[in-house]
Each structure stands twice: as structure tokens, then as C-alpha cells.
Design a protein around this nucleic acid. Sequence first.
DNA 1: CGCTCCAAGTGGAGCGCTCCACTACCATAG
DNA 2: CTATGGTAGTGGAGCGCTCCACTTGGAGCG
Lengths: 333, 333
Amino acid sequence: MVSDSSRRPTIYDVAEHAGVSKSLVSLVLRGSPNVSAKRRAAVEAAIDELGYTPSTAAARLAGARSQRLEVVIDDYRNLWFVDLLEGIRQVTDELGYHVGVVDMHTGAHSALNDVIASGVEGVVVAAELPEALAEQVSVQAVVAGNRASRPPGADLVANDDDAGMTALMDHLFELGHRRIGHITATGGSAGRRRAAFEAAMRRAGLTPLSVGVDAETGADKGFVGANELLDAHPELTAIVAENDTMALGAFMAARQRGLSVPGDLSLAGYDDSPLAGPKVMDLTTVDGRGTELGRQAGLALLDRIANPDRPAETILLPPELVVRSSTAPPRLD
Amino acid sequence: MVSDSSRRPTIYDVAEHAGVSKSLVSLVLRGSPNVSAKRRAAVEAAIDELGYTPSTAAARLAGARSQRLEVVIDDYRNLWFVDLLEGIRQVTDELGYHVGVVDMHTGAHSALNDVIASGVEGVVVAAELPEALAEQVSVQAVVAGNRASRPPGADLVANDDDAGMTALMDHLFELGHRRIGHITATGGSAGRRRAAFEAAMRRAGLTPLSVGVDAETGADKGFVGANELLDAHPELTAIVAENDTMALGAFMAARQRGLSVPGDLSLAGYDDSPLAGPKVMDLTTVDGRGTELGRQAGLALLDRIANPDRPAETILLPPELVVRSSTAPPRLD
DNA sequence: CGCTCCAAGTGGAGCGCTCCACTACCATAG
DNA sequence: CTATGGTAGTGGAGCGCTCCACTTGGAGCG
């Protein structure tokens, strides 16, 4: 903790201080077993006496691995990635990896390229990458969630949106709903959920009804979507939103129109986010099992780093329907 | 875009390809004016013919600046930082800085230390750092928001929580509210807001009433807090939450108890987050002006990097009261 | 007792850049 | 015609590590 000179201490300073060679210091740093306890102690003492921290730049140049992974997301506002991140860290923390998050903000230059150039060992892609960008990803990659495009050779780990939406629709059908609207958005996952919604409706002999056209999935979009649906089709008895956040908007729209949930209108979301919890909306939703998905994605990425030539795999996780109080049988009239 | 050999191309490969010296390539890379148009073009052609990307590790070792800043946050779930980030980027993007986000997740080793060691030029601290950690911050720093601790020499840029809460309380008093509860949390900002709440109540000759004891500020905490308040004090006519997210929980608690907002209970938050918007809760709140705060923080950090010995400054931004439909005069009874 | 073998430790080369001192050349001024 | 200066371009040193080939000193064994 001494700030002797102006210059930041190097491995040579530590070596001199401890009376050993720089190579031995390097061995201690990297936890080599072939170091006697005595020398190791001396080196460690020197390290914190000088307040030494290794230069990661020098280490990287000399060939050390960066031990860094990044999760690529679209937007921090979509909290879907938080559970994913937790799952990834569950499997990478103990190996000493640092896992960061980069968003694809539309700045002058692509943040993703910066990050890849800066030497991460791999990325978990939890964003909709433009095709051109996806092709440029030159590090190990695994895609998390259903996406439109996919870096070459990347694994895919996703929840089975088809199965989840189908289970949710079965639940609504069983309650007796027939006039069901869907608030959707664009993107890989949204597209699949929408397709599953429409397929389920058709199978039941009903006409699917969807609104929503852009990529945004904020609560305000859900509000607008719900109003649009209810203005055009006041006879609806249930609304399914692309995700829980949009369901919150729909919830508020219903309230403003004086419709009680689930009395007048049943409401369902997707993701089982904190918003859907019993202490908030108490929303019927589908648990995409983000943490587990993160674990699988983390394991796949680690495996891919260890074994770069392994062919790409696809892992589909079965999601789980979570029934709460926002859905009930439709009012008889 | 050619992948000639196995090895990644270096500056020497580019130089040879373009028929110039490696130094000239370096000059082109760094945008030096002392390069003829002809050579510049030749180098640029060679660069994308070879698909060359400079090694940031080597550049850093050789003394180049990293052009990276990091925003340090507590938790991705608290979206307060999103506007802040946008503001920061407004002033740093054009200078070519890459601005990332690190969360203080409680992993084995501190993510913050990793990040600092990896060579960022500065950090915006938008988190409650443990005192010991704050002291170790060895890069330029500015603190955003009111915090318990502060790295040595760091500037402080914050919204004036005192003024914001006071304005909000004046609004409630003017509407006629006297029995007002507060849902709070721990931490720098929460502490100040709470103090301002209690001071305002006392000035009005009233007894302040606050619940909430830990650092968590999720919607579920707001739900629990509101129920606690209303169980003990059913006579309350208004509840003020530490932030909009907690206000959402309180909103849901009111709904569950059959209390209409604002008919039976007025509700206010803080932050003016998307949740508070007219298409969601339509919540009376205080705009902390996060984007502007980010701009100021970004400017302060850039200035501090250019001029490291400048004494620390404090910038307090006046927040703005946003009145929406969640507050109204109390029911007469 | 001489041999091998392994554990512990060393020094040198080199990773791919940036920076600096320097040169070559041309234009302009005295 | 020489000094002056600025613009365009070069080569070498060195940033702080890791990796590798190597040395040294004992322990184990026939």
C-alpha cells in the first residue's frame, strides 16, 4: 500500500523486493504449484507492500487469456437479461471469469466490435443483431433466446417459445375464453410467440387478433396496444401480451377503461418478471426460466472456448406456465 | 476481409501490404494530419483487405489511452442509470469514448477492481460503494447521485433530493393532505429524501411516518410497505414512495385493498421513470433529470481526465415536480 | 556411489503497438 | 545561394508481461 515513486510498480519491482526473479513472480500470480511456500509468501508480501496490480494489457499481449466474457443486449430497459446474467455467472464465477454487459446502443461505432477487439474470450448474444454484424463476430459465441440472426458457428440456447405460448393458450381455452387478443412486437422471440398464438387460435377454429408492429416492448406500448384492441373489439375477454412489461401497460389501460382484471378481462404476460409477482400484478405468465437458460448458455460458451471446433448445438428449454390471479373464466353474458 | 494465414494480421503486415513503414500505419490509425492522401488511401485499402483490427492490448502497453469509461451501478434492475448513461454518452460519444456499465455484483472478487485494473480512464459512480472500496478507486471518478461514500477527490453531481421532496410535500399539503405515509429504503438518496420528508412533516406540525429498512427498492417492497402503513394507519390519505418502482407496489396494494387512486388514496413517487408515464401509472413524481445529470457528470469526468488536479466540485441540479393524476385532494369525511 | 529424475527457479525472447529522435525533401525568406 | 522551417515519412527502443528452454540441487534407486 506504499506509493513510493510516481510510477506504478511492475513485476520487476516486486521481484526485486522479494529477492526472486520476475518469472517466479509470474508463477505466483498465476498460481503455479511449483513454488515453495516460503517464496510464495515473500512474493505475496512484496505485492501488497508495493500495492502491485498486474497490467492486464501486458499480460494479454504476452499471451495470457483475458478471462472476460460479455453478454450482448439490446437495451438495459428490457430486464430479461438480468436472470440470464445471474445464471451465466453461476457457472463462470468460480472459474474466475469476469462477465460484463454491453448494450447495442446506436452510437458512432458499434460497441460490439469494440468489445470483441478488446479481447473477450466469448460472448453471449442476447440481442437482435443485424445480420451483417452477426457475421463479423469473431470470438466464441452462443445465442441466448430466439433471434433472427446468429453468428456463424454459435450455439443456440433458448426457451421454447412455441411450447410456452401454446400452454398459455390452452390455459385460456380451458377457462372458456374464445375472444382473445394479442399484443406483440418484432424480433425473434416475439415472432415465435406470435406465430404460436395464431396457430393456437386457428387450431381452436378462431380468428387470431394481434396488434403491435415495432421492436419496442415498453409498458406504454402495451397500453396503446390494449386500447387499440379494445376499441376495435370490445367483446374481447382476454389479452395476451408479448411480455410482462407490456402486460403492465395493458393492465393500466383496462383500469382506465373501468374494466376489472380478471372480472371483465383476463390478462397474461410472458417471462415471469418481478412485475408479474404476487406482490405486484399477480399476473398469469410463462416462466422462461432465464436463470437456467443462463446456466446452459454459460456452460455452452465455456465448452466452446475449451473446444472451439465443436459443431453448433441447439438447446431448447421447456418453459413453465405460471397461473396467477389475472386470469379467470370469462364473464357470462 | 481475407483470412490468409492462421495468425491475426499485425501492423507490420499492413505496412508491408501497403508498402509503407509500420509507423506510418500507426499514424493513419490515429488520424494524424501529417499523412499524404495517397499513402493514407493505400494503408486503408491494406487494412480492410487484410481485415486488420489493431490490438488494443499492445496499444495500451505502448502508452495509448484506453478511451474507455465505466458507469458503476448497484443493480441492473434499478433503471435509474439508463437516463444517466444516455446523458453521459451525449457528451462522450463524439470524443470516441466507449462507455460501459459494471454492476457491483457480489462475486468472488470485486468487479470494480477488475475494471479499474483493466485500464479505464475514469468511472462514474452511480452506486453505493463500501467505504473501503471507495478509497481504493485509483482512476478519475465522479459520483452521480447522493451517496454515502465517495472516492477521494471525486466530483459530485446529483439532483437536489431535498428540494425535490420538499416540492412534492408542498404539493400534497396544498391539496389538503395531512396524514401522509412514506415508504423508504437505505442509501444516500433514500436517506436524504426521507430526511426531507420528515422535516417537511415537522414543519407542518405533523408526525412523520416512514416504513422500510433495507436497501431493496423493488415493487414488491413497495407493496409490503404500503400494506404495513395502511394496516397500522388506515386513516392515511396519501403515500409517498422512495421511487416510482416502489410506488407501483403501493399502487397494487391499494388496488388489492379496494382503495381507488387518487379517490381514496393519493400516491406519489420519485424519478419520473417510464412507469410513471401517462400511459402507465400516470403518477405524480419528481423528475430527477437523469439525462441532464448524466451530461454534467460526463463533462465533469472529461474535465477531470484532462485536468486531474482540479479540486473536487459539487453540482446540485434542481429537480422538477411532475404532477399527474395519482394525487388529488383527500376525500372529506 | 553414480545415475536418473523431478521439483524449484532463472533468463531471454518476443507479443504488437506508440513514441521519439531523426532524415529527406521542398518551399520560402534573407 | 544558403539558412530556416515545416511537412512527410522512417527505424529503434521499450511498454510489462508470459512462455519456453534451460540450470540447479536433492531425493530415489540399482
